[in-house]
Write a protein that binds this DNA or RNA. Sequence first.
DNA 1: GATCATATCGCGAGGCGTCGCAATAGCGAC
DNA 2: GTCGCTATTGCGACGCCTCGCGATATGATC
Lengths: 154, 154
Amino acid sequence: MPHEQIEASAGPAAASPWDDVAVRLRAGGLRWTPQRRTLIEVLREHEGHVTASELIARCKELDGTTTPSTVYRALDLLEELGLVKHGHGHDGREEYHILPQQVHGHLYCVGCGSTWEIRPETAAVIVDALASQLGFAVDLSHVTISGLCAGCHD
Amino acid sequence: MPHEQIEASAGPAAASPWDDVAVRLRAGGLRWTPQRRTLIEVLREHEGHVTASELIARCKELDGTTTPSTVYRALDLLEELGLVKHGHGHDGREEYHILPQQVHGHLYCVGCGSTWEIRPETAAVIVDALASQLGFAVDLSHVTISGLCAGCHD
DNA sequence: GATCATATCGCGAGGCGTCGCAATAGCGAC
DNA sequence: GTCGCTATTGCGACGCCTCGCGATATGATC
Ligand SMILES: [Mn+2]
Ligand SMILES: [Mn+2]
Ligand SMILES: [Zn+2]
Ligand SMILES: [Zn+2]
């Protein structure tokens, strides 16, 4: 497969945020390892929300030697780089937002199990209320708020 | 210790919600077991918020044979009776509110680790926003909202 | 391409919470 | 007081997540 490198580096291209992870890591004295490579590969396949378990499972498919603790640690790292953002589902389990564009809160209906993202306008009301009344800077994206959706109550 | 029963039933007394748990359980075809008795005894000692682990530990002090799964199941039951209400801390772990008077939300500062209850006025804003905009009936007490307190940001 | 400092890994153990199952024991009825 | 139905328990196993530790391997330097 000659010319592979030439092709890969041809053109400015649609730069993906994943492309320079190796560089960013090394710039900080950190290392670009096969385990991290695999995780990035998996993350490239996803959008939106994914469970930590799902990510680990997929990594294991690509590399049978995958270890959970290594994946968790790599995810922590990528979160510091701003490439993923974790939150907690209604039961406390971790969920990851891949390439979080705009942070958003989550709703979970205990009646039917549906989930929704909280729209920016609605989120703003919540954020503003806590900011103005308590000076508290909410990270809405970290939690899933439970309750009953319109279809499930009354 | 004669007259014990007479004393116990003397006067209308300051009825505690714990006093008729046995009756309420039996009324539903459920049973009043030593394990549940121990848990109630522990709950009587507490107010406000307690971790599930703390409750289990305290039960174990009173009864060395205590089993975690049994305590968890008993707590589920008491929650159905409205005597406790569980929520999740910022890390997803369970916390129990003993005799929840008024449900309230919780705030956690990721900077200093402090926690606060969300005051009713503030909670009302959040609940109303989700109710009016989405028809969603929030159970604020089930989650701990993370962020930075006034002292920890800017 | 060899060397070396140290970032990272894999492993094992532990805490938390859930569930299925077989054995046990409330408690209502007689 | 005994009997019998079945709610409940204890156990064991599992899934999720974290952490410490000794072994490994990255990648900067020469
Ligand atoms: Mn919950
Ligand atoms: Mn978290
Ligand atoms: Zn619903
Ligand atoms: Zn703070």
